[in-house]
C-alpha cells in the first residue's frame, strides 16, 4: 500500500486537466520512501496518445533528486481517453522497476481515477493507493 498526500494528488490532476487532451507526465520524488515533491514535466511528444519526458529536463530533475538524496518514487502520466491501466506501450517501456507507475484517467474529467502499479519484467501488479 502507498500513501500520497492530497496536495500532491491535486497538483497532478490540475496538470492533467490543464494539458488535456494531451497526456501529462511527471515524477514524484521521495525521501526514505515518503513522497516529498511532485515534478510536473513537459510531454515532449505533446500527444493525446503517448508521452515522453524531455530528455534534458529528465536529466536535470534526476540530478536534482540525486543531490537532495531523494529517490524516484513514482512516474505518472495521464490517459485522456482510456482507463487508468498500463497499456502495452507502458509495459514495454517501463525501464524503472524501482518506481511505481501511476496512471491518471481523465475519461471523465469530473471524476478522475488515479491508480498505482509496479511493472517489472513486463508484469503488472496493482498496489493499493491511498490519497491522504
Amino acid at each position: 500500500m502507498s500513501e500520497l498526500d492530497g496536495v500532491f494528488y491535486k497538483e497532478i490532476v490540475e496538470q492533467g486537466l490543464r494539458e488535456f487532451p494531451n497526456e501529462c507526465c511527471g515524477v514524484i520524488a521521495a525521501e526514505k520512501g515518503v513522497p516529498v515533491k511532485v515534478f510536473p514535466m513537459k510531454n515532449a511528444d505533446a500527444s493525446p496518445v503517448t508521452y515522453r519526458l524531455d530528455g534534458r529536463e529528465q536529466l536535470k530533475v534526476f540530478d536534482e533528486m540525486d543531490e537532495q538524496g531523494w529517490e524516484l518514487w513514482a512516474i505518472y502520466h495521464s490517459h485522456t481517453h482510456s482507463e487508468a491501466y498500463p497499456s502495452e506501450t507502458d509495459r514495454r517501456l517501463a525501464f524503472y522497476p524501482e518506481a511505481r507507475y501511476m496512471l491518471l484517467s481523465l475519461t471523465d474529467r469530473e471524476d478522475p481515477v488515479f491508480r498505482s502499479f509496479l511493472i517489472r519484467d513486463g508484469e503488472v501488479e496493482e498496489e493499493e493507493l491511498v490519497i491522504t
Binding site: E23, C25, V27, D45, S47, V49, T50, Y51, R52, L53, G55, Q58, L59, F62, I75, H77, H79, T80, H81, S82, P86, S87, T89, D90, R92, L93, A94, F95, Y96, Y101
Partner: peptide, 12 residues
C-alpha cells in the same frame, strides 16, 4: 557519461 533510459509510454 550518464545513461538514462527514457521515461515514456501512453495509451497507444
Amino acid at each position: 557519461v550518464s545513461i538514462l533510459p527514457a521515461v515514456a509510454g501512453g495509451q497507444r
